[in-house]
Amino acid sequence: MDMKATPVWTRVCEVTDIPRLGSRVVERDDGNVAIFRTALDTVFALLDRCPHKGGALSLGIVHGESVTCPLHAWNFDLASGKAHAPDEGCARRFPVHVEDGAVFICLD
């Protein structure tokens, strides 16, 4: 029998606490998490560290469903965390859901 742990969802903020086309940072001892909000109010969460040179993705530019790292202009898909070609790499993604305007992330 496969016994997977039930995800633990942590309420981090309201959607309106995140600027449109911007981010908010959740501080953690083992790496901060950047919570992004698109122009269409879709919310995503990635580890706040570019895998290329360690830049804070939360300081990047959000466009569509992507973010551009402020250090060397690498572009990452917010849904998967994968870098857009020709760049290679992946920023860790965290599951997110919005309920009644509140943003919850799974930090497991």
Rank of each mutant, 00 (worst) to 15 (best):
R28M: 13
G31C: 05
P19L: 10
T10V: 01
R93K: 15
C50R: 00
H72G: 13
H84S: 13
F36G: 04
D30Y: 08
F44P: 00
D48S: 07
V43H: 05
P7V: 01
P19Q: 06
G89F: 10
T6D: 14
P70L: 07
E14C: 03
I105N: 01
E88W: 10
V15A: 11
T68V: 15
I61S: 09
F94Y: 15
V33H: 01
R20M: 08
C69A: 09
E27R: 11
M1Y: 08
D30H: 06
A45S: 07
D77E: 13
D77M: 09
V15L: 08
V67Y: 02
V12M: 08
D41C: 03
P70W: 04
D48A: 06
D100C: 06
M3L: 11
A102D: 15
A102P: 04
D17I: 01
V15C: 08
R93V: 15
C90Q: 14
L57P: 06
V25A: 00
V12D: 02
A79H: 12
K4G: 07
V43R: 01
T10Y: 12
N32I: 02
L40C: 09
G89W: 12
A39Q: 11
T16E: 13
H72D: 11
S80R: 10
P95L: 13
T42W: 09
V67K: 02
D108A: 05
E14K: 01
R49S: 07
T10G: 03
S80I: 15
A83N: 12
L107Y: 02
A34N: 04
V96W: 03
F94P: 03
R28V: 08
T10R: 08
E65N: 14
D2G: 10
S58M: 06
D77S: 13
C50A: 10
R49C: 14
R37A: 05
G54M: 04
D77G: 12
G89I: 11
S23H: 03
